[in-house]
Amino acid sequence: MTDDSPLGLVTAVVTGSLLLLGAGLAATGALGLLRLGSFYERLHATTLGTTLGMGSVLIASMFFFSVLQTRPVIHELVITVVMMVTTPISLMLLVRAALYRDRREGSREVPPAP
């Protein structure tokens, strides 16, 4: 982007702050992978990046390209739907696998099978 670009200051500020919010949330989630103690706690951290983090970057991208090309660019909605559908499923599969492994080892951290 050069300074003589046709974008207004409003577009730049809106896109920039949405990008920073999304990237900040994704980075916080990834930092949670380091800071939280157990596997089940770490699973909560990833959701930050996949929900609001991804969401605000996608809104920033839709807004920016709609202004840049002066027509509605909404194909980012496909990624939004894909993330909304796939994230809970992959996390649930992962937690099932972890629970199964922990129970088979007789870990005291997880509640016993009903």
């Binding site: 089940y40 699973l43 909560h44 951290a45 959701t47 930050l48 929900t51 909304m84 994230t87 809970p88 996390l91 649930m92 937690v95 099932r96 629970l99 509640p111 009903p114």
Partner: peptide, 22 residues
């Protein structure tokens, strides 16, 4: 429940119709 950060669905137990969340 899984999409919301802070809560996590762990398992569903059909006999007693209970769920386990973290």
């Amino acid at each position: 429940i899984t999409s919301t950060p802070g809560t996590l669905w762990v398992e569903y137990e059909s006999a007693g119709n209970t769920i386990l969340i973290h």
